[in-house]
Each structure stands twice: as C-alpha cells, then as structure tokens.
Amino acid sequence: MARPAKTAEISERAQRLLRVLIEQYVREGEPVGSRTLARASGLDLSPATVRNVMADLEELGFVCSPHTSAGRVPTAQGYRLFVDSLLKVEPLTAPTVEQLRRQLDIDAEPGELVESVSNLLSSITRMAGVVTLPRQEHAALRRIDFLPLSQRRVLVILIMNEREVQNRIIQTERDYSPAELEAAAAFLNEQFAGKDLAAVRSSLIDEMQRARDGMNQIMNAAVSMAEQVFIEDRNAEGEEVVVAGQTNLMDFRELGDVEKLRQLFEAFNQKRELLHLLDQCLCADGVQIFIGEESGYQVLDECSVVTAPYKVEGEVLGVLGVIGPTRMAYERVIPIVDATARLLGAALNPKT
C-alpha cells in the first residue's frame, strides 16, 4: 500500500476544502466547482480564493480537472490523504451490529457461511463483496473414509474439526476394492487423525520423498490418494475466494466503460490476482485500504479495496472485504468491513 500522504504539506484551509470536495464528489459523482465549494465549506472565502487553493492542490496531485468540466475531482492521492488524515470513522452502533449478525447463517458450514458473508457485504454496500475461505491449515483432520465409485473414481469423506464434513471425488490410477480402500483409510486415520492440515501435508510430502519401493501396497495406495486430497486439491484454481455482487459495479459511471468492466469481471472470474492481493492482508492488523494503483493490479486502478482479516482465537483464518470505485463512502464501508470480519470470526469459533 502507498505511503500515507502528509497533511503538513497543505494548510488547514486547504484540508477543509479538500474534505468538502471529496464528500461532495462521493455524494454527487460530479466534478465540484469553486462556487459550490465556497458555499459548502462554511468558510468565508470568495470563489476566486477557492480557485487558487484548488490550483495548489492540483499542483500537489490531490485533485485534477476532467477535460469536460471546470470543476475538480479527487485523485487517488487525494483519497489517500482524506482516508488517512481527514476522515473520522465511527464504529457501528450495537443495534446495527446485531442486525448484521442476524443476517448471517451462523449455523452453516464454513463454505456456506463465507458465501453468506460475501452476499451480505455486497447487498449492504451495493458493491462487490469478497471473502477468502478459511485457511485449512488451521483445521484438524478427525477422520477420512474412501468409498469406491465407477470408472476408477473414489469418493473421499473428510471430517474436519468437530462437525465439518467435506466430500470430494478423486480419480485413481487403478481400481481399488472396498477392502483396499478401507485399509488405506485406516492407515491414514492412524497416522494423521487429530493433526492439522499443515502437519498432514508436511508428513505426506516426507512420505512421497521416500523410496516408493520401501512402502507396502496399502501405504502406497493411501499416500497416493491422500496426495490428491490434501496437496493437489489445495492448489485448485479459483476455489479459495468467494465474490458476490460484481454486477453492482456497473451502476457506477466511472466504471461504466465496457472494456473496464470486461477486464474487471475477467479478474473476478479468474480470481488469481484477487486472491494474491487479499493474501497480502492476512498479516494486517485491522482494516487495510488499497486505493487505485496501490493494489498493484492495473485492472483495479479505478477501484478501492477495503479489507479486514477475520480471526478465531487470535489466529487469522482469512480476509474479507469490499471492492468498489475509488468514489466510495469510506466512512460507511470501513466500519461495515471491520464489524463483519469480527462477526465472521465469532461465527466460525464453535467450528474450530
């Protein structure tokens, strides 16, 4: 994220005018003229004086003048100064937080709960909601079972933590009898039951690095199938982040260009860059805000991303956030993201 802009660079009067300009622009979506600013600021300034201040702010890179208007709009640098130094964010009231909590299906499995949170963020902010799935390294394996299917496929039943059940289908290199699958599951349960997935993966990699000739048939089969379940599946593309409300972005004029929208939706569908950006926030303490080019991804140059990690017992499990235009109501979005992250962590607590 870019370094915060310093308010010491501009006078208090200029800061006041910049704050009013941004608030007006966020509300109206139109370039703000000097006469409007002079009236809205509450300062006893002439439009000519305001124009001079705006010229100074433009020279410093905090505002710019669109070609089609004499008014000015904030730049990403202007938003950064506003968010870091001029914005007063109030936490959500207790009734509002309770209203959010009631909209979450707290009894759902983690995957369904994450989808619920993504939809909730989208519906409340009218922008795109994003949530990464809980990192499975923090999930403990309770039991694994294998059931034979047709065409060399095997149904894998995983019981994680206390009550989370996951079903996966893997393709095997040969047919396995029910007895072989039962023996393979018994071997894996004996070796790994009660361990978190990070330990399971580490042990499996060690096993695979040993000479395969040194394993008996049951061990070989068990390790081969577990490799697909715990290692290859971990890297499945696009399965680790849930996005909702992408089409909401079509309602914002600054994102209404067809080519911009196409690139944005393509990024949402592929999710690779989006997941990488969110991963950067895993170690953050509290809300992180990427404005425009700060994300490092060209497709998000016209967007802001507001994120917060969610935790269970102090352990960060994932990140959630909102993606919208740089012209967003930050004072509203920031506390929503912060409160939702806390609610998701609390909802996941009984499941871990």
Rank of each mutant, 00 (worst) to 15 (best):
S224D: 14
V20G: 05
L155G: 02
L18M: 06
S85P: 01
S46R: 14
D213P: 00
A244R: 15
D338N: 13
V114W: 00
E115V: 05
G245Q: 12
F62A: 05
A139C: 12
Y297G: 02
L278K: 04
L264D: 09
K311L: 11
R253V: 14
D196L: 03
R201D: 05
E112G: 02
P4Q: 05
S150M: 09
V131A: 14
A222G: 06
S46H: 13
V333D: 00
E227T: 15
A108H: 04
E173W: 09
T49S: 15
N349W: 08
L141S: 01
T49Y: 07
F230R: 01
N248V: 04
D105S: 12
E294S: 13
E254W: 06
K88P: 01
F82T: 05
K195G: 01
I144V: 15
L37S: 08
S85T: 07
K6L: 14
V337Q: 11
N167K: 06
E112S: 09
F265Y: 11
L57I: 00
E315F: 07
V223Y: 15
I170V: 15
I170Y: 10
S202P: 00
E58F: 00
L100V: 05
T132I: 05
Q270Y: 13
L86Y: 08
E315R: 12
A76D: 14
E302I: 00
T93S: 15
N52W: 08
M215Q: 13
E59D: 13
S123L: 03
R102D: 10
E315T: 10
Y330N: 06
A38S: 15
M219D: 14
R101V: 03
E259W: 06
D107T: 14
Q246Y: 08
R253F: 13
S34A: 15
M54T: 03
G286A: 04
M250G: 10
A308W: 02
T352G: 14
E180N: 04
E315G: 01
I157K: 10
E273L: 13
L343G: 07
A339F: 08
F146V: 10
V333R: 00
S116V: 11
Q77N: 09
L149P: 05
A179L: 13
G245L: 12
I10R: 03
R234T: 07
E232A: 12
R272W: 06
A179F: 07
P335A: 05
K311W: 01
A140K: 13
G238F: 04
I144A: 02
A211S: 15
V20C: 04
L158N: 04
S41R: 04
M215T: 12
S203C: 04
Q270W: 11
V89P: 05
G61N: 03
R72D: 01
F62H: 08
R153Q: 15
P134D: 04
V243D: 05
P335M: 03
P350Y: 10
Q263N: 14
G286I: 01
Q136I: 07
A347I: 06
K88G: 09
E273P: 00
N119L: 09
L274G: 10
D213Y: 12
A128K: 08
E162Q: 10
A341M: 03
D206M: 08
R234V: 07
S116D: 15
G296S: 08
E227P: 00
D233H: 09
P95W: 07
E207W: 11
Q171R: 14
I336W: 03
